[in-house]
Amino acid sequence: MEKTAFRETTSFKVIVLVVLAAAVVFAFILGNVVGTMDISVSDIVNTISGDHTGTNNKVIWNIRLPRMILAALVGINLALSGSILQGVMKNPLADPSIIGISSGAGLFGILILVVFPQWQNLVPIVAFAGAMLAAVIIYLLAWKGGIDPTRIVLSGVAVSELFGAGISAILVFYSDRVHGALTFMNGSLSSRSWGEVRTILPYTIAGLLLALIFADKLNILVLGDDTARGLGLNVELTRLGFTALAALLAASAVSVVGLLGFVGLIVPHSIRLILGNNYKIMFPATALLGAALVMLSDTFARTVLSPTEIPVGIVMAVLGVPFFLYLLRK
């Protein structure tokens, strides 16, 4: 038997997962420690174990801890969503924006922020509804006796363009009120707290579990529709189920932090380049890297020009794109 290359061995994969997990822990601690107030690791431990009395504990409990948890959850959701969509659409460039999630959430979110600012606290729900509405419209357009990935991508692009035009129109007509809309469009974790964590957490847990349980179905789907059917996979149901899951994951993330791009594209690709395309390993690895990446980017966004905060989406692009290009050239 041929000797297996080290990169193909289980031990290499375990090592990568352990490194990624360590990165998550590091990013989490870093995000809680750094900032305008110096906080020690023991403060974090105290706070998590229930001591909320001191100023430091209050800062951790009310601001940094929920923000880091939210960053991790958003990272997991977007990264999983992207890796699912790339498989389902058989398109390595697929990410949540391609099935209209971002444009749908964007249009509805901005409509509230700019036109009806008095209902601002409805943004998560309305953005979520917009994302799902866009996904449904794209599916209806792409449905023709079955779902064809190419038609989904094409109608996704068309609907995204239309919704994008809607966003531009709102920004032009209400140019005096665009400030709130801008942070939403670039994705920001600023002043998010436990409420947002509660909104997104159920989706992250359900999404992670379902993805891990059904990973092999997606592995088989990637072999091609005819081959997958021959092996006994219900191709239509699998594709529909995974697309819905990806839509829910991305929509829940967008509804709490706005349009955060790149995560769904960069994270799955980096993992593919390092670990290959087996979804059983890819899903846990993308979840870990997604969490670490968004936490680190947000910490950077919050501290680099302190006290001014940069929207995390911009940091994401500045950090993520060169890294992605590096992996691609390697």
């Binding site: 005819d226 059917r229 021959g230 092996l231 006994g232």
Partner: peptide, 19 residues
């Protein structure tokens, strides 16, 4: 379709996967 696959295997022509 799973019950069919327990009895019938298919080798199709257009194997586009770059798996």
């Amino acid at each position: 379709t799973k019950l069919v696959a327990q009895k019938m295997a298919v080798l199709c022509q257009n194997d586009t996967s770059m798996s």
